[in-house]
Design a protein around this nucleic acid. Structure first.
Lengths: 196, 196
DNA sequence: GTCTATAATGGGATAGAC
DNA sequence: GTCTATCCCATTATAGAC
């Protein structure tokens, strides 16, 4: 049986989040109006407020969902009982793959930190630090094993994540290099940067 | 002889640019109003238009000045007739020093690319690529010399610049490490990442 | 659940007095 | 060169009809 006209609760929510993500990524949170988001979805601006209490919460929910997905995805595929170098290679490839596949969410989650209220910022910041700590733990384990050499594991984690996330600024699917070739180039640099 | 009251053309211009830079860095271009900038400077909003034709040009001029300063500063202090590894170390330390001292301009020049009109974007993008090419040239020279090993000099340049610029996300002057200690940590990682 | 209409506020930019 | 006043338009969010 057909739904009542104008009643699409099951799909409108996701469509709003997707449209908001794309627009926030392209133009920035402050530059995007609720009317624009509604226009992309094909509803009037007022209808958005059936799905989010306000624009700030819409942004926050997108960022939190992304950070939680990121942590959950890595925790699900991190090798168990493997040597630190094996885990580091897995992390490197995972980060590049996940981040290029979710370029818009990555971009928004980094660029719009300053658009969050203090309370919301603290939640996202905590998740971001958790992710950094995953990498730091790998580096420290490798130092224990004697296969990794880093002067400052925390700083090295931040440096490597910055380097890997930078892929998003230039990688395009139609480019000269396949994603696995890109992964190999970066893994080479990561490996050498933390070994003697 | 005292200036006429309300006449401060010599200092108001720089004060406007400084206030705009700080506010754009903190809250983002789209989120900052001309009234806010004027308020920081201590003039009314209308007075800003004696110094810039519009808000877009104010942003563009800040970004162009920063990129041109960056290129000129490196060109002035790049070692001549030195080995590629020496030049690469100089580049690494220069980039960290320059970027931490001009954190706000760096931040704005990266975050607000999307706030530029297409025409203005192309100018800034060209300058950004010029800077990347400076590093790429060093890596290629090192490969010729046989002291540097990189699979993809262009990609390696972007990867290293992303890593080095990342310092700005966490470095604080009052922190545990001095700037030259930070430089040393990063130079260690850079050197190893591009040598065999 | 979506619509239309609107309240309340603030935006960029300009005109003209001084 | 700066001020005050203002134009015109967009913003977020809400109210109430359907």
């Amino acid at each position: 049986m057909a739904r009542t006209q104008g009643s699409h609760s099951d799909i409108t929510g996701p469509r709003i989040r997707l449209a908001a993500l794309r627009l926030f990524a392209r133009d920035g949170y402050a530059a995007v109006s609720m009317r624009q988001i509604a226009g992309e979805v094909g509803v009037q601006a007022g209808a958005l407020y059936n799905y989010t209490p306000d624009k700030q919460t819409l942004l926050f929910d997108l960022m939190r969902a992304h950070m939680e997905d990121l942590l959950a995805a890595w925790d699900a595929e991190a090798p168990r009982d493997a040597s630190a170098l094996t885990v580091l290679e897995a992390f490197t490839r995972f980060h590049i793959r996940f981040n290029t596949r979710r370029a818009e969410a990555v971009f928004v989650s980094y660029m719009e930190l300053r658009s969050l209220t203090l309370e919301n910022f603290e939640v996202i910041e905590r998740l971001r630090r958790e992710y950094e700590t995953r990498l730091e733990t790998i580096l420290r384990a490798g130092a224990q094993e004697g296969v990794i050499v880093v002067a400052e594991p925390r700083i090295a984690s931040m440096a490597l994540i910055a380097m890997l996330t930078g892929v998003n600024t230039w990688y395009r699917e139609q480019g000269r290099l396949s994603l696995s070739e890109v992964e190999a180039v970066y893994w080479g640099m990561v490996r050498r940067s933390v070994t003697a």
